[in-house]
Write a protein that binds this DNA or RNA. Sequence first.
DNA 1: TCGTTGAGGTGACAACGTCATCTGAAAGCC
DNA 2: GGCTTTCAGATGACGTTGTCACCTCAACGA
Lengths: 208, 208
Amino acid sequence: MVTRAESAAATRRALLDAAAELLDLGGPEAVTLREVGARAGVTRGAPYRHFADKDSLLTAVAAERWEQIAGQVHALRIDPALSASKKLRRALHTLIDVGRDQPHAYQMLFRWNGKRAGQLERLHRQLCGPEGDPEAADRAAGRFQDEFLAIVAAVAGERNAQHYGALLLAGAHGVAGMEHSGHLGADKWRTTADELVDTLVRVVVTAQ
Amino acid sequence: MVTRAESAAATRRALLDAAAELLDLGGPEAVTLREVGARAGVTRGAPYRHFADKDSLLTAVAAERWEQIAGQVHALRIDPALSASKKLRRALHTLIDVGRDQPHAYQMLFRWNGKRAGQLERLHRQLCGPEGDPEAADRAAGRFQDEFLAIVAAVAGERNAQHYGALLLAGAHGVAGMEHSGHLGADKWRTTADELVDTLVRVVVTAQ
DNA sequence: TCGTTGAGGTGACAACGTCATCTGAAAGCC
DNA sequence: GGCTTTCAGATGACGTTGTCACCTCAACGA
């Protein structure tokens, strides 16, 4: 009935779900391999059959989150009922919302992805590693960036899309980060994250 | 010769220096209380006489870094040889430089400062705690923000200084974060962090 | 001078990531 | 079907970490 491959895939899925849930609840520190295993119905050593280490597990969670965000922005981009500038605002607010609703997962998205420096290590992983996700998170983030870039190009033109796209993305990212870290206190700056994103779009659009 | 207060102050200083050094070397994970104590010439339990826990120690390090940055920006602001817009660019590049040279310390600066939620806990800490730094990091960050706000006001006018100041600060923060996390790959966006900050200033200034 | 205080040392504990090893069932092969 | 191989998962163990309770002893106030 249940082949071994099916069982393994189900376990991997359960591990990812458990890790994502724990991440949202209490941050990376709360993602314990023991607790992840327990919630997935296995023991603490089992995750090592699917992920190289804890970091790889968290990276895989981040990759899925990037995929999800990329899907949302893609749906936004092909929506014929929205104007180009509206799509741009919505895309940036998508990031803000993630940072607001799942702050810990958001931090995983923009985390220095270690492991990547060594080209030698990549080769080794490709040959004997448990297969899988050396740069899956990078590719997923790239898919989001491609979708976002297309939206920016429709507003700012193909010529400066990359430069202004990076500026818009970095701006929204900074707003999300400052809101999350509490450095956007209303008493000090007398503004909100949403206002800042809207101003950012307006300012960039009017500039070019 | 050496009073008890002097000795304690020297130990505290050594603990902060050791923690800062380890933080720069290997990030928060590398800051172990045992190694910090060893480098400060004491044992693992000694830091608890000066800081409530590891998190408080890291927060104190972040507070000193904020003080240092605030000092740099202050020196910038009162420099008569610089134009207003030049001061603005330099202030933002100060942040970018910290994110580039001490990325781990930079992340500490914009970290969610936990402990602050409970007003009850603040009172308790004020009464019986080991004295010290409940919101020292916040106050230091506030000093930087005040200096920065004054620079922005000289460029964008007093009226919209807060709104545009927050936008500029968040923009630079996002650029620093994306550069640090590797999401600013030159092949994708065809731009650099420095170009982005300059464009950000130009765009905001021309808008208002 | 004597009791008090508080910085620092020490032992211990639980929790964690990680690995080596073992087990048992599915998978492939004859 | 019977055999061997493979591999997901269980288990025991190890080193490291943050943290606490307890102890020591020199500086301090009276």
